[in-house]
């Protein structure tokens, strides 16, 4: 216990805790949208495409987060636009962007003279090296996301549920779709810092899937995923510190263990309910 209190005196650990909470909030909200709308694969495409931006920014000597944001948002809007306006198959486009972004990123980092950054930290993230700028960006994202979902929850939900019907009701379908897919891209890019490119998708899907086991309400799903996100990332953070393992991996590990426990609890609940009925 004393060891835990001691941990909180370190600045890097406080930053990590802050990042875990902010990541859980932003991913809890955006991830619920991703899971409900079944756009997990699109999100995977955006994630990997943004690596091209990281590489380019590194090559030009800019902040990698900035490059990733530009690439992420542009590829998100591109996927949305291409699948609406042309008859190219959406999943094929995502496949192309996915690989192209990664290739571009690796190429640029290779071409950058001098010190080559640790590729591992982009791919797997490191929550223990999160700085003040990252935290401010994450905080800004959280505030904006909460505002959007607070004021537009019903229209977002209705359009996501039945886009065709929403269009017949002259709802601003296109505006909402572009807004939401941009938010998805920003959430992904800013959270790459925390868990990395390869693992960020788990932050956007595992807590949501756990929450979805126990509720069918979109609103409750959001709160549930935030709670499970915070719980899982805290456990992961402590384990990471304890055994000196990469934090991204330990966080995802604790998510999956939570998922298995939740699944068992759900199965027990179902069988108890059946017994009561019989």
């Amino acid at each position: 216990m004393n060891e835990l209190i001691e941990l909180f005196q370190y600045n890097f650990f406080l930053n990590a805790v802050g990042a875990a909470i902010l990541a859980s909030i932003s991913c809890g909200i955006i991830g619920s949208y991703i899971v409900a709308r079944r756009i997990v694969f699109i999100s995977g495409g955006i994630t990997h495409a943004s690596f091209g931006g990281i590489g380019l920014a590194w090559y030009l000597g800019l902040n990698p987060v900035f490059g990733a944001a530009v690439f992420g948002v542009l590829s998100a809007l591109g996927i949305e636009w291409i699948s609406k306006k042309t008859d190219v198959r959406q999943d094929s486009v995502i496949g192309i962007l996915w690989a192209f972004g990664m290739a571009l990123g690796i190429l640029f980092i290779y071409m950058t003279p001098g010190y080559a950054p640790n590729l591992m930290s982009f791919l797997f993230g490191n929550i223990l090296t999160v700085g003040a700028l990252d935290l401010y960006l994450l905080l800004g994202l959280c505030v904006f996301t909460i505002a959007v979902f607070f004021f537009l929850l019903r229209p977002i939900l209705f359009v996501a549920f039945d886009e065709e019907f929403a269009r017949t009701q002259k709802a601003p379908v296109q505006f909402l779709n572009y807004l939401l897919i941009s938010l998805v891209a920003l959430a992904i890019v800013l959270n790459i810092r925390v868990v990395g490119i390869i693992l960020v998708i788990s932050f956007l899907t595992i807590p949501q899937t756990i929450a979805n086991m126990f509720t069918n309400s979109f609103k409750k799903m959001i709160f549930g995923s935030i709670a499970f996100g915070i719980l899982g990332s805290f456990i992961g953070l402590l384990v990471s510190y304890r055994i000196n393992a990469p934090s991204g991996a330990t966080i995802i590990f604790s998510f999956v263990i939570l998922f298995v426990i939740a699944k068992l609890v759900q199965l027990v609940m179902i069988s108890v309910r059946r017994k009561n009925l019989a």
């Binding site: 409900a36 929403a166 009701q169």
Partner: peptide
């Protein structure tokens, strides 16, 4: 499978 209750679906008819 979309997480939306019946009453919300009915209300969505008022979007226009």
């Amino acid at each position: 499978k979309f997480p939306i209750p019946v009453k919300e679906v009915v209300l969505s008819g008022l979007m226009s």
